[in-house]
């Protein structure tokens, strides 16, 4: 399992990164893609839609499981990674490079409340089996 040092993490296994322009990029963690297995489909959020923190905004699907993606911070979706439509396996290849969507956060401070890499690692290693 890889955990990128410079990212923020949600309990629901999304990573988030603040960009220089104030937007937040979101994906799912390497641990999440390992649990799911080979991804076969990503249902992307709708551009222009506003999500609350923790709201369901998409789905990642493998042959044996489907898991919701939750918005780690509140905000409006301003872009989605269309490449994942045809190639969901990009997330399996590199979960931190294969971003899923980009938000314009409505409360940028929420990002600080997310876990850092060490805390996320602690959470994952405490999971059973």
């Amino acid at each position: 399992m890889k955990i990128a040092r410079d990212l923020k993490y949600a309990q629901t296994h999304e990573w988030a990164r603040a960009e220089a322009d104030g937007s937040v990029v979101v994906g799912i963690t390497d641990h999440a893609q390992e649990l799911l297995g080979d991804l076969v489909y990503v249902e992307l959020p709708q551009v222009g839609k506003v999500y609350a923190k923790g709201q369901e905004c998409g789905v990642v699907e493998s042959v044996k499981a489907a898991s919701d993606i939750y918005a780690p911070v509140a905000g409006e979706v301003i872009a989605v990674n269309d490449e994942l439509g045809a190639s969901p396996e990009k997330i399996n290849e590199d979960a931190y490079a294969a971003w899923i969507f980009r938000l314009r956060p409505s409360a940028p401070d929420e990002l600080n409340a997310l876990m850092d890499a060490a805390a996320y690692e602690g959470m994952v290693s405490a999971e059973p089996g």
């Binding site: 076969v40 489909y41 042959v63 044996k64 499981a65 489907a66």
Partner: peptide, 14 residues
């Protein structure tokens, strides 16, 4: 069988 992740035995209440 394919696209089973849409179905009740995997997706349950969704």
């Amino acid at each position: 069988l394919t696209l089973q992740a849409r179905e009740q035995h995997i997706r349950r209440s969704k």
